[in-house]
Computed example of a mutant assay.
Amino acid sequence: MASAPQLPLFYNGLEPLSSELHANYKIRSSNVAPFLTGQHAIPLTVEEFPLVQRFMPIVFSSGDDSIPIALMGLNEGVNVFVDDAGALTEDNLYVPAYVRRYPYMLARLRPDADELSLCFDPTTDTIGAFDDGEPLFADGQPTELTRNILQFNENFEQAAARTGQFMTEIRDAGLLMEGEVTIQQDGIDQPFVYRGFQMVDEQKLADLRGDQLRKMSQSGMLPLLYAHLFSLSLMRDIFARQVKLGKMPQPQLVA
């Protein structure tokens, strides 16, 4: 098993998928994701904005290397879209690709390696030498299922690269600002204030020069910025879901 001091969200380890070591491994289907139950913020790729903005607020993490994230809850440890077992509570919910990618990911086996290898989290209970399930290899070759998994992960990496470029452009344009949302609940004097994220400054976006706006519109970037801004209205919906589930936050908590 190859592990790193700082593994990505959800992953407890990474092991390269091998036709020799894992020749008899199979995949069991599962309709639950226990790893998702306590996660309130999920990384996004920029192409997902139009789909995600229908269900979850899209914000940007704090810091200079910020990334887009979907909020599945407003407080750490709270996810309003899954039950305690990790099953989705809605049939038509869009699930971010970062979640659907698990337990696989492309990774460099050595820091100096140029190529990315398909790896998996060996602690998952969906991959193993099971009697039942879909095989990963047949006659020493990847099955169609494994090839599809590899293609999905390659597509994800390409989308992540485009997302990185998107983030560079909005930072260079000076469009990000520190975010804050205040929610006043009936019957409680103290408002709930959420900080610790970034958002697009609407005024700065409106003040951009015409040529800058035209470039963003032609590149498809402008609609994505508005998808983010429109999604912020869902903050109060997520808060209401937390209240309904009895997962009441405390005033002044940071998202």
Results as ranks from 00 to 15, higher is better:
residue 14 L to I: 05
residue 187 G to T: 10
residue 254 V to W: 05
residue 214 R to E: 02
residue 243 V to G: 02
residue 197 F to E: 03
residue 200 V to Y: 05
residue 39 Q to D: 04
residue 206 A to Q: 11
residue 109 L to D: 08
residue 179 G to E: 00
residue 7 L to Q: 13
residue 25 Y to I: 04
residue 125 D to G: 12
residue 97 A to P: 11
residue 97 A to R: 15
residue 140 G to K: 09
residue 10 F to R: 12
residue 110 R to H: 07
residue 33 A to R: 12
residue 14 L to K: 08
residue 69 I to R: 07
residue 221 M to P: 02
residue 9 L to S: 12
residue 36 L to I: 14
residue 63 G to V: 09
residue 29 S to A: 13
residue 122 P to L: 01
residue 30 S to A: 09
residue 128 G to W: 13
residue 136 L to K: 04
residue 188 I to V: 02
residue 173 A to C: 03
residue 75 N to H: 08
residue 202 E to V: 07
residue 159 A to R: 15
residue 231 S to D: 09
residue 101 R to W: 05
residue 158 Q to G: 14
residue 111 P to F: 00
residue 163 T to A: 15
residue 95 V to A: 01
residue 160 A to M: 11
residue 144 E to Q: 15
residue 216 M to K: 14
residue 11 Y to D: 13
residue 41 A to V: 00
residue 55 F to N: 03
residue 164 G to H: 06
residue 159 A to N: 13
residue 139 D to L: 00
residue 70 A to G: 06
residue 61 S to L: 06
residue 57 P to S: 09
residue 75 N to C: 07
residue 56 M to Y: 04
residue 182 T to V: 06
residue 25 Y to R: 15
residue 94 Y to R: 05
residue 250 Q to M: 12
residue 180 E to F: 00
residue 95 V to Y: 01
residue 164 G to C: 04
residue 44 L to R: 13
residue 73 G to Q: 05
residue 122 P to H: 08
residue 52 V to E: 01
residue 168 T to H: 07
residue 154 E to L: 13
residue 216 M to N: 03
residue 189 D to E: 14
residue 56 M to V: 03
residue 244 K to N: 08
residue 213 L to W: 00
residue 38 G to A: 06
residue 115 E to C: 05
residue 52 V to Q: 08
residue 107 A to F: 08
residue 86 G to E: 11
residue 209 R to I: 15
residue 43 P to H: 00
residue 76 E to Q: 01
residue 194 Y to F: 01
residue 93 L to A: 04
residue 195 R to I: 03
residue 178 E to P: 06
residue 21 L to N: 06
residue 141 Q to W: 12
residue 83 D to P: 01
residue 126 T to N: 08
residue 69 I to P: 04
residue 103 P to I: 13
residue 57 P to F: 12
residue 213 L to G: 05
residue 167 M to L: 09
residue 40 H to M: 07
residue 246 G to C: 05
residue 137 F to G: 09
residue 184 Q to A: 06
residue 142 P to Q: 15
residue 10 F to A: 06
residue 62 S to F: 02
residue 163 T to F: 11
residue 59 V to K: 08
residue 28 R to Q: 14
residue 199 M to A: 05
residue 238 I to S: 08
residue 54 R to C: 07
residue 77 G to D: 10
residue 6 Q to H: 10
